[in-house]
Design a protein around this nucleic acid. Structure first.
Length: 288
DNA sequence: AGCCAGGCCCTCC
DNA sequence: GGAGGGCCTGGC
């Protein structure tokens, strides 16, 4: 058992279960534990007052503690970000609802493949696709839960090939996943290096990948490449903006121009505004 | 049963 | 350059 001190706000549940990532789930029982896999570590996390508690395998704990802090972006000053975004009344309302929800800093490779799988798909099936990729082609984690493998490397997916990916149930996305695996495993594109690139450079590089358009590229940039100005426009953001900003008789912005509109409006931390609006709108939809 | 899902590609205008 | 149709598969 180990602990990490909290400095800023944290809503662990909203952070892990708000659709940025697909490999976390609450454990059975009502004791607040979440189980997931981050960079070949199986990790259990629980939020307590002033700290988070964790267990991990294979460890060592000190290194995993660093991985967790990096993953949860504890270097982001949420108080500062909130103060900038709360000038917008609608974003402030969403922040008030889910205060402490953080953008994650994920493995760019896993993030890319996960969101390629998200195209014209539903979340239960996306989750299943990602889990199936891991159990079929990923490596077991030492001391980890049986079948709960690490996410497969680019080489592992390239070796699997399009046919096996399609047979796994990825559908038409199998071709895109296979192509991305080839590109990455042959070092035709270096995803981690895009953390040092500008927003526009990273965007240009990502959308060269077949099956990756503006929306998926913005997800990968926001959730794994440190581009907090990224603003993925999906159906939920489309609904949120139309209902909360463009009605009843305000300017109308077509889907193709929503990202630029939002980035100008919300500025450097547009991605945080995106995540709060997205999650709030999606939860509102499920509330009915 | 039939519509639709956290898009993207391709064609055609 | 952008509007419209098609796409694997399975959730609901």
């Amino acid at each position: 058992m180990a602990f990490i001190d909290l400095h800023g706000p944290l809503n662990l549940g909203a952070t892990l279960l708000s659709g940025q990532t697909f490999r976390w789930s609450p454990e059975d029982g009502d004791d607040g534990w979440f189980r997931g896999i981050v960079f070949r570590n199986e990790i259990r996390l629980r939020q307590e007052t002033g700290c988070i508690e964790f267990t991990c395998t294979p460890g060592p704990r000190e290194r995993v503690a660093q991985i967790i802090q990096d993953y949860l972006r504890f270097d982001d000053d949420l108080t500062e970000i909130y103060s900038l975004l709360e000038t917008d009344d609608r974003v402030k309302s969403s922040i008030d609802r889910y205060r402490g929800m953080r953008i994650l800093r994920q493995d760019p490779w896993e993030c890319l493949i996960s969101f390629i799988c998200s195209a014209n798909n539903n979340i239960p099936r996306i989750t299943r696709n990602v889990e199936d990729l891991a159990s079929a082609f990923g490596s077991p984690i030492l001391g980890g839960t049986s079948g709960n493998n690490a996410f497969p490397t680019a080489k592992q997916l390239a070796d699997a090939g399009e046919k096996a990916l399609r047979e796994l149930g990825l559908g038409f996305r199998a071709k895109y996943v296979a192509a991305a695996a080839e590109m990455v495993s042959r070092a035709q594109i270096d995803l981690f290096s895009l953390r040092e690139a500008s927003y526009q450079e990273a965007l240009d590089a990502l959308i060269k990948l077949i099956g990756v358009g503006d929306k998926i590229a913005n997800c990968v940039m926001l959730f794994s490449l440190n581009k907090l100005e990224a603003f993925p426009v999906d159906v939920w953001i489309d609904r949120a903006l139309r209902e909360w900003y463009f009605t009843p008789n305000l300017e109308t912005v077509p889907r193709s121009r929503m990202r630029a509109w939002a980035q100008r409006r919300f500025g450097h931390y547009a991605g945080y505004a995106n995540q709060y609006l997205f999650h709030d709108r999606r939860m509102a939809g499920q509330r009915g």
